[in-house]
Simulated scan of single mutants.
Amino acid sequence: MKITAEQELSLIMEMLTQLNVPGEDASIVAEVTLDADLKGFSSHGLGRFPQYVKGLEVGTIKPESEITVEKESVATALLNGNHSFGHVVTYRAMEMAIGKAKETGIGMVGVHNSNHFGVAGYYTDMAIMEDLIGIVIANTEPAVAPIGGKEPILGTNPLAIGIPSGSHYVSVDMATSASARGKLLEAKRRGEMIPENVALDAEGNPTIDPCAALKGSILPFGAHKGYALAFMIEIMAGPLVNASYGKAVTGTANPEVMCTKGDLVAAIDPSKFVDMEDFKSEVDDFIDEIKATPNVFIPGDMEVRNVKQHQEEGIPLDTNLIKQLKEITNDLGVDMTNLLGE
C-alpha cells in the first residue's frame, strides 16, 4: 500500500489529536515523521509511530511538559526537555542555536530528558534554510559493542551535517553503526533478513537475523573508525549535556522506560567567516568537480531522489505496519480507512 504525503500528515495529526498532544507540537512531530518517510528513512518515519504511541500511553512521553533552559550564554544553552516529544525539544533547540548563530556566528545547544527525535537531518535542514551550517549528534540505548567486545555499550549515535549551497542539497544523516537500530526493528517487523557484516548475535557470531541482532550487537561502520566516532559522540551527547552515557542510556528504542539519552545541536554562520555568496559558490564549484565524473553522487542526492519519487508515486507502507496502525486507530476511534481512502 502507498499513501500520499498529505494522507500521512492527516493520519498523524488525527492520532496525536486523539492522544491530547497540543496542536503545534503535533504539527512538528508530523512534519519530522513525514520528512523521514519522504527521504527514504522509513525506519524513522511512520514505522516508529507505534513506539511514540506507547510512550504517550505509559507516560514516558509527556506532551504537556514545558521545555526549560537550565544554562545559557550568548552562544550556548542547555535545555531540559522534561520528557516532551523529542521532535519538539530538538526543534526548539535548533531554533535557539540558529538564533545564537545569527548573533555570534555559532550557536550550540545541548539537550537532556528528551525522547527519540526522528530523523536528525530534519533539524540540520532547518539551519540550511537559514543559510547556516547545521550539525546534530545524539547518543542512544546501547546497541554497539566496542571493537573486540560483544556486549553493547555504545549507541548507534547518529551524526547529521547540512551545508548551504547555491544549487544543491548538501546533507549527510547517518548512524555511526553499520545500520541504524531502526532498520533492524523494521526488518523484524517485515519478517526480512538483514545484510551480512552488519550485526552479531549475543554470542558474538555474525548474524543476518534481525531478532538475533537485536539481542546481540550492531557492528560500528568502518570498524575502528566508526567505533571511535561513536565513542566521541557518546561523550559529547552524554556527560557534556548532563545526559546518560553507555549502559545507562535507556528509552530510545524501548518506550516503556524513561529516555535518558542526550542531543547536541549546532548552527554555524558562514558569513561570519567569509562572504556568504562566495561560500555557496565555492561549495557549488566543489560539487561540480565531484560530479564531473559520471554517476557520482554527493551526500544528499539520494534523499532528493527519494523525495521526488515518494511525492510522485506515494510512500510505501508494509502490511505489518498497516496492521499496527489500524490497531492504534481503532483504539483511538480514528477512521483510518476514511483518512487513507482505502
Rank of each mutant, 00 (worst) to 15 (best):
N242K: 13
E186M: 14
Y245T: 15
L325F: 00
G59R: 01
K323W: 12
I194Q: 01
I153Q: 07
V274K: 08
V334A: 05
A143L: 08
A266T: 12
M174L: 15
I287H: 02
E186R: 08
I194L: 09
Y245G: 05
D263S: 12
M15H: 03
A145R: 05
G148F: 01
T176W: 00
D263I: 11
E342D: 11
D173M: 03
V32I: 14
K280W: 00
E282L: 11
K326M: 07
E6L: 01
M96C: 03
S42G: 12
A187H: 10
T60M: 00
G81Q: 02
D35R: 12
M232R: 12
D173L: 07
E234R: 05
I12E: 03
D209K: 08
L321V: 09
V109F: 10
R92P: 03
D209W: 05
D285H: 15
N320P: 06
R305C: 04
G262M: 05
Q309R: 12
H112R: 14
P164I: 07
P50K: 07
V296S: 12
V21S: 06
D37H: 00
E70V: 14
G226N: 07
C211N: 14
E6P: 03
T60G: 09
S84K: 13
F41K: 10
F221W: 11
N197S: 13
V88L: 08
G300Y: 04
Y123R: 06
G121F: 05
G99T: 06
P152Q: 10
Y91I: 00
Y91R: 05
A26P: 05
H116S: 06
I28C: 05
M13E: 12
N82R: 09
S167W: 01
D35N: 14
M96D: 07
F41T: 06
Y123V: 08
I268L: 15
F85C: 01
Q18K: 15
V69S: 11
G262A: 13
I67D: 06
A237E: 07
D269G: 02
T250E: 14
V74M: 14
Y123F: 13
R181C: 10
D269I: 01
L229R: 07
G86C: 09
G110K: 02
A75D: 04
G47D: 12
L219K: 13
V21W: 09
E130R: 14
G333F: 07
V334P: 09
A77Q: 06
M236F: 15
G182F: 04
E103F: 03
E24M: 13
D125V: 14
G55R: 04
G59N: 02
I12F: 01
A202W: 13
G45A: 05
F279C: 03
V172W: 01
E203Y: 13
L11S: 06
L19V: 08
C211E: 15
A292E: 11
S114Q: 02
N82Y: 03
I163V: 15
E196C: 08
E66T: 11
V21Q: 03
A266H: 04
A187N: 11
G99D: 04
F231T: 09
M302E: 07
I61R: 11
T4E: 00
A36G: 08
T260E: 07
N139Y: 05
V283H: 02
C211A: 15
E282V: 08
K247C: 04
Y52M: 05
L132G: 12
L9C: 09
M232I: 14
V58T: 13
C259F: 08
L229I: 12
I135E: 04
N113K: 15
A30E: 08
P316T: 00
G107Q: 06
I328G: 11
